[in-house]
């Protein structure tokens, strides 16, 4: 069998200039259950599908609040995500302590990006096996960032990572122009619909396996007033899932009437 000699560690380039260990770490992200993130003018929303190891076990947490203005959604190795989220919590707290200011989102994202890069350039370390979606607000409004094991970070309008996330991305791309002008609640529904796209036939979104995080600016942007990060799980999800159902029902009805018209 062909043996790839260039994939034993993160400090060896292949002749094409690739680093296989980093690419393999990206695969670990694809093993994780899917999370979706999206922004409009005022809010950033994270939506995640939780998995449980077996029927009787609890579900793995997918969305973590970092600070009142920021949260993350994770796909991949949850323990690596905990290391990163603890770091983010510390940095965020330290900014509030030192300057009395919530840490700008892009700055914390570059910090974890830089940390991840170090793990790809030194022997004896391994790349993080987790991808993150970081949603937060700061003086310049709501933001959504994607973080990858390579240390790559990118600001996105919408994003999905994890198993079968391509379906969600397709949905987001198709509805991209609707997102920006959507309301807070519509944005959540869009997120849930994108998430639903990734489900296999026999699965459904329930109050047990779904997780939603919302953060936004309240009133006039740049005046320091925010709608703090809120996590919707369990019974809190009921109205959100109902809105999802209503939106889908509305759409099918619309399609039906259109058919009647024609």
């Amino acid at each position: 069998m062909f043996r790839n000699n260039y994939d034993n560690d993160a400090v060896t380039f292949s002749p094409q200039g690739r680093i296989f260990q980093v690419e393999y770490a990206q695969e670990a992200v694809k093993q994780g259950s899917v999370v979706v993130g999206l922004v409009n003018k005022t809010h950033a929303v994270l939506v995640g599908l939780k998995r449980n190891a077996e029927e009787l076990s609890s579900y793995q947490k997918k969305i973590i609040e970092v600070d009142s203005h920021m949260g993350i959604a994770i796909a991949g190795l949850a323990s690596d995500a905990r290391v990163l989220s603890n770091f983010m919590k510390q940095q965020s707290l330290s900014s509030r302590m030192t300057y009395g200011r919530p840490l700008p989102v892009d700055r914390i994202v570059s910090q974890i990006g830089d940390r991840a890069q170090t793990n790809t350039q030194q022997y004896g370390k391994r790349p993080y096996g987790v991808g993150l979606l970081v949603a937060g607000v700061d003086e310049s409004g709501p933001h959504l960032f994607e973080f990858q094991p390579s240390g790559m970070t990118q600001e996105m309008l919408a994003c999905a990572i994890g198993a079968r996330s391509q379906m969600a991305r397709t949905y987001l791309e198709r509805n991209l122009d609707k997102l920006e002008s959507s309301s807070r609640d519509e944005l959540i529904t869009h997120g849930l619909r994108a998430l639903k796209e990734t489900l296999s036939q026999d699965k459904e979104l329930t109050v047990d396996n779904t997780s939603v995080g919302v953060v936004g600016v309240a009133g006039e942007a740049g005046r320091g007033k925010i709608e703090s990060f809120k996590l919707y799980e369990g019974q809190l999800l009921v109205p959100l899932l109902e809105a999802l159902e209503a939106a889908e029902a509305g759409e099918t009805k619309e399609e039906e009437t259109m058919e009647v018209d024609s």
């Binding site: 030192t98 300057y99 009395g100 700055r107 003086e139 310049s140």
Partner: peptide, 15 residues
């Protein structure tokens, strides 16, 4: 970065 997140006088005083 040029994203408009600047320290104001209050932040500066805290620091």
């Amino acid at each position: 970065s040029t994203n408009g997140n600047t320290l104001n006088a209050k932040n500066l005083h805290t620091y």
